[in-house]
Design a protein around this nucleic acid. Structure first.
Length: 454
RNA sequence: GGCUGAGUGGCAGAGUGGUCAUGCGGCGGACUGCAAAUCCGUUCACGCCGGUUCAAUUCCGACCUCAGCCUCCA
């Protein structure tokens, strides 16, 4: 299996630390608002990758943190006039709802910063003892980047480059522009006592402390959105390696950004759509397929048109299973499965994998007869990416409709009667009227079914 | 300004030194009372300029354009 390692900027053969086991840490959410589909992109990518890996026989220990202490959370809480932890609790709940409705697996552990203050303090103490941390008078505690020779390796920049970049505000307490806060001294908001006084952890340190607690000082893969590469991941590497003299994560994986109108979708640009917005009109698997149709490292431009196209593809796949039962075992067509595996094992080439799936689906349709074994293969492969988990019946009726189900059934019966009497004018009118309301009727094997269109 | 990635047919998006991506859409058929679904056929391509090569969309160099990071960001 090959994985593109951001650290070496090369596609490398993946060598696990322990045979057939993968320890994986993905940087999760900072919870102060509803998640948007840019966030969803990253976590759906990893969800599909992990589902595939497990399907392929890997034992994946998946850790994804929740950052529940942070300036933005504290600020949002102040505005909402509730405590920071109450606010983050609320949005953790919303996040779980959204992730669940997107069909994502829960990680094996989902550690929160507020539960790991001791580990964080211990780590800062270690760094301080080893001479990597400093503070001046009443300043925050900083990491001394000059002391870490490899600083900048991941994000491919030198300390000189960082220093020469334009800055809005310069912190005079820092030795170097790139030095970052390990412990933020503060008495407002939510704080904890520490050897450096009352305060809270800086950003970055939590991921080092928590990943090491659950996966050890060295583990296989560390992932996250591309926008975390610098400074977040760079800083994680610096503090972790300095604290332990170990390598920390072996492989770094970064997902590409989601764009909208040629710009990255982000909170600060206010150009985002929430998961809840999109799921009003589109089945969660449509969004998932939309993402998987592009390689995980490439940017994706969001558009409704794109979602509709993904839906057309998914519709075709669900159509195959409309009336069929599926036996749960592999059978023939080793070629299809082998090809699927080679695509996925080549840095998780989901677009290619889906192409194979589409071809395979077509080959089933070509025969014009039910092939349970092929359908089983297809379903199993789709499931390994988190697709086709719904019943076709639910899938095709997803979204809000203007009618009660019984009403639609009545229209269908009325139309059937009209057709029997060769009153096609009335029959077609009923069908057209429903179509206008987003209900599509299909005559299949003498039976009429309905689908919601979007 | 520095660093990184990308530019493929109407659209989305893989891949490759010389044969086809694929899907959607369009067009023409089959099927259907008509549709839908499905099938068959068909159309449309590799940013620009040089170089290497018997051969380049694929390798090399310049250029143009776009995006990301350099500040919080999945």
């Amino acid at each position: 299996m090959k994985i593109f390692n951001s650290l070496t900027k090369k596609k490398e053969t993946f060598i696990p630390r322990v045979h057939k086991k993968i320890d994986l840490y993905v940087c999760g959410m900072t919870v102060y608002d509803d998640i948007h589909i840019g966030h969803a992109r990253t976590f759906i990518n990893f969800d599909a990758i992990i589902k595939f890996l497990r399907f392929a026989g890997w034992e994946v220990n998946y850790i994804r943190n929740i950052t529940d202490i942070d300036d933005k959370i504290i600020e949002a809480a102040r505005e909402a006039k509730i405590s920071a932890l109450d606010l983050s609790r609320k949005y953790i709940n919303e996040m779980h709802k959204d992730f669940d409705s997107l069909g994502m697996m829960r990680p094996n552990k989902e550690p929160k910063v507020s539960d790991h203050i001791n580990e964080i303090i211990e780590m800062i103490k270690t760094l301080e003892n080893k001479g990597y941390a400093y503070s001046k008078e009443d300043s925050d505690v900083y990491f001394d980047v000059i002391k870490f020779k490899e600083y900048g390796k991941l994000s491919n920049r030198t300390l000189n480059q960082i220093e020469s970049a334009e800055r809005i505000d310069i912190d005079l307490n820092k030795n170097h522009e790139a030095d970052f806060v390990l412990w933020k001294k503060d008495t407002l908001g939510i704080t904890w006592p520490s050897p450096w006084g009352q305060g809270r952890p800086g950003w970055h340190i939590e991921c080092s402390a928590m990943s090491m607690k659950y996966l050890g000082e060295e583990f296989d893969i560390h992932g996250g959105g591309l926008d975390l590469k610098f400074p977040h991941h760079e800083n994680e590497i610096a503090q972790s390696r300095c604290a332990t003299n170990k390598n920390f994560a072996s492989y770094w994986m970064h997902t590409g950004p989601l764009r909208i109108f040629e710009k990255k979708m982000s909170k600060s640009l206010k150009n985002f759509l929430t998961v809840k917005d999109v799921l009003k009109n589109f089945h969660p698997e449509v969004l998932r397929l939309f993402f998987l149709l592009t390689h995980y490292r490439s940017p994706i431009s969001y558009s409704e048109e794109g979602l509709r196209k993904a839906k057309i593809i998914l519709d075709k796949l669900y159509n195959l299973f409309e009336n069929e039962k599926v036996i749960d075992r592999f059978s023939k067509d080793k070629t299809f499965i082998d090809n699927f595996f080679s695509s996925m094992e080549d840095d998780f080439n989901t677009p290619k994998a889906i192409q194979l799936i589409q071809n395979y689906a077509q080959s089933i349709n070509q025969k014009g007869e039910i092939n349970i074994e092929k359908l089983s293969n297809l379903k199993m492969i789709l499931n390994s990416l988190g697709l086709l988990e719904d019943h076709p019946n639910n899938y095709f009726k997803y979204g809000s409709i203007d009618f009660l189900v019984d009403e639609i059934e009545n229209f269908i019966n009325e139309r059937a009667e009209a057709r029997k009497n060769k009153n096609f004018k009335l029959a077609d009118k009923i069908r057209d009227d429903l179509l206008e309301k987003g209900i599509l009727l299909e005559d299949l094997d003498g039976k009429t079914i309905w689908k919601k269109i979007s």
